[in-house]
Design a protein around this nucleic acid. Sequence first.
DNA 1: TACGATT
Length: 315
Amino acid sequence: MTQEDLRNLFSSIGELESCKLIRDKLTGQSLGYGFVNYVKSTDAEKAISSLNGLRMQQKTIKVSYARPSTPLIKDANLYVSGLPKSMTQEDLQRIFHPFGRIITSRILVEPSTGMSRGVGFVRFDKRPEAENAISSLNGTIPAGAKDPVTVKFANNPSQKNQQVLQSLYAAASPTRRLAAPTTGPLYHQARSFSDLLSNVNMGLGVKRHLPSKCAGCTAPSAASSSCAPNYGICIFVYNLSPETDENILWQLFGPFGAVTSVKVIRDYQTQKCKGYGFVTMTNYEEAFLAVCSLNGYKLGDRVLQMSLTKPSGAA
DNA sequence: TACGATT
């Protein structure tokens, strides 16, 4: 939605004094909210009663009175993971409401099934309420659940966009390409990697740095995995260096076939890779070959290990 | 830091 869309929608109620769509500072992308001032307060009331809850495309818009702008309401948004799949938004609110006024909350779902992904968000009115919720709830086990939940401050959308831009820049940067070839790990990777691929393409056995039993490949029926089985095969990759970025995973797995997503798991504070990541591939045969080929592959000074992700909830 | 998930 553009600023103009916002203006058109809300000016249909009454005369506007001002109207502002909030955008990311770097990318200019809408952050999904904005502020509208009406000349007459009765029009503001009308806007809330007629537009709140309106469904637009995939979204349900929320319209309410803006809270007074103060530093206290900033950074009060929490990210919650490890929730039982059976937990509803109402359950989530029940758990968090003792700590303060909840502005919004939601549980993320798999689009295809509507099933909970076990993660969600809770935005409190005030920062100290959010802090209290973290210290009281993080690591605790909800009633009736068997695993503890993680409660922490949510990532800031502009931080996330910065990461994406940096990663794109790093991939495209000529200095990076010139600096790497003779000494960097990418050079060594590229040479031995192409050897490896030519082996694969000729249908020959694959050299490995470890005597590999192809972990995770022994039971092809285990193709179902915790990560979106409808969307592909999810591969767990371990022993990545702290400097690993998404591009490296794309480069490693892309030649084996269709890769739908890659994820480097990072420490939130340092933004360094925690040593592992995930790659989702569309086709089982290609994923199988990638795991068999890349397990034991030496990237820089590290021997990679990989397997299909641990199935979840299987008896 | 051997299984994430960021509206």
